[in-house]
Amino acid sequence: MKFELPKLPYEADALEPVISRKTIEFHYGKHHQAYINNLNNLIAGTEFENSKLEDIIIKSDGGIFNNAAQVWNHTFYFQSLSPNGGGKPQGELATAIEENFGSFEAFQNQFAQAAATQFGSGWAWLVKKENGKLEITKESNAGCPLTKGDIPLLTIDVWEHAYYLDYQNRRPDYISSFWKLINWDIVESRY
């Protein structure tokens, strides 16, 4: 099976001014596409040729893992965002966040801290553990919570390519603006 670049659920300029059209065009059109192309090339003729993406992530390592996990992570990231995003989570997810972190603000602080302190390239995550608890984690490079059996709920890409054209060295500004784009309906459905 050949993997394909999934369609963006919004226009390239829809997330402005938080994320510019230029950033989306490179991030989605070049980086995400390159991970897909690399993955297709790497798995051709291997045991992974007909595997599901999630299975490849769990079973592979090296270049195949890096590209497979980056395909998955980027699809998940772009789907977490929306021009109509922002606000706060509702329903059961809101309750769970309060139970696990004390308050939505405490959760935001902890998530922002994880994103700011991921040294080098990587991702910060909100995950649901097997026992139902919520946890904030950070992963370097292509790291993906699926390999630990966690259910990913929300992520922020802190590779410099995700924000450098818009924020340069000011990663904390990107992180604080990011809250305006979160599609909490999607995050809740994952929960």
Partner: peptide
């Protein structure tokens, strides 16, 4: 690091 080249060369 991407910060070394991203403004000029992007990906």
């Amino acid at each position: 690091w991407e910060h070394a080249y991203y403004l000029n060369y992007q990906n």
